[in-house]
């Protein structure tokens, strides 16, 4: 199977979700996948480390999804690719469907693993169910859910070749970028560890204990919707059905009741820890580990215990 993967770059290096997509491409191609990048690349951008042998570089950094789609289409034709892989992150998610339309491919968004019996696994109903999807066309486009497949380092390096293509005019004028977090922590959908808190914290002035725990764990912080709505925390931290969907390795929920709309955004986490004074809080039913207790007492002790690890 001839597989092409689009790998986004950040400061000349492949992003983590890009390396994940490349690892996936490498796995389904049996080690023969080719990568395409747009922009300046430092060396091979680290793409060779996941087993990719060849990187095609379009030297200009494109950020218009219609131009990127034209670039990936052109590479897929010149490489004779039958499957094109993206990360299901913000960028990939906007380009992949366009490429599917352009090359007449079936599109499977947000796959969570390699195909089994020709069918791609993905999560549906906000993680409450799984679907196994077949593709009825000769060509396939897939996007890989961040933090689902993992970066599979095998060691190695890739050759980088220049690629030029006719990508047309940019039609979106992308302006100023405003970072969501000033501390430079990982964007929530890509975070491996998340410490989240709800109305049980009583007020914004109490978030210090949440941030301390997050810092000790090298985790990002999140919150329930009422906390975002009341302005205790910035809106972008709100996780759940109407906020961000995350799937970290570890999700620690402090003073959050576990309403179904909250769970919809977090129940794909690998391990869930719940800290709540109410033993009947619904969140305990979705949790792996729980502490029935007061966050104001438990969190500082937990933070100390974690600090002892390192």
């Amino acid at each position: 199977m001839s597989v092409l993967v689009f790998v986004p770059l950040s400061e000349g290096k492949a992003t983590k979700s890009g390396l994940e997509a490349a690892s996936y491409a490498n796995a389904i191609s049996g080690g023969s996948a080719t990568a395409v990048v747009s922009g300046i690349i430092e060396g091979d951008g680290g793409i060779g480390t996941v087993g990719i042998g060849k990187v095609l570089q379009y030297s200009k950094a494109l950020n218009d999804n219609s131009q990127l789609a034209k670039l990936v289409e052109a590479v897929s034709i010149s490489e004779g690719a039958s499957t094109v892989v993206f990360s299901a992150n913000l960028e990939g998610g906007a380009v992949a469907p366009r490429v599917a339309v352009r090359i007449g491919a079936g599109y499977v968004p947000g796959v969570t693993g390699v195909p089994e019996g020709g069918n791609y696994p993905r999560n549906v109903f906000s993680g409450k169910a799984k679907a196994s999807v077949s593709v009825g066309t000769d060509k396939t486009v897939v996007s890989v859910t961040p933090n689902a497949f993992g970066v599979k380092e095998v060691g190695g390096s890739a050759t980088v070749e220049a690629f030029s293509a006719e990508v047309g005019e940019a039609r979106l004028l992308i302006g100023e970028f405003t970072p969501a977090s000033v501390d430079g922590s990982v964007p929530l959908p890509e975070a491996e560890r998340v410490v989240s808190a709800g109305r049980g914290l009583k007020g914004p002035e109490n978030w210090g204990i949440v941030e301390d725990l997050a810092k000790a764990l090298n985790a990002s912080t999140a919150c329930s919707r009422p906390v975002g709505d009341m302005g205790w925390r910035p809106h972008h931290e709100h996780v759940g059905q109407t906020g961000v969907t995350i799937r970290p390795d570890l999700y620690i929920a402090c003073g959050i009741s576990g309403a179904i709309q909250h769970l919809a955004g977090v129940n794909q986490s690998k391990v869930i820890v719940v800290i709540n004074t109410d033993p009947e809080a619904p969140f305990f039913k979705a949790a792996d580990y729980g502490i029935v207790g007061d966050v104001f007492e438990v969190l500082p002790k937990l933070t100390e215990a974690i600090k002892l690890l390192s």
């Binding site: 799984k130 679907a131 077949s134």
Partner: peptide, 16 residues
Amino acid sequence: TTKVEKFSLPPAKGDC
């Protein structure tokens, strides 16, 4: 162009 061949429910979480 695609079809869901099968839906499934994830295994129930073990006890907390």
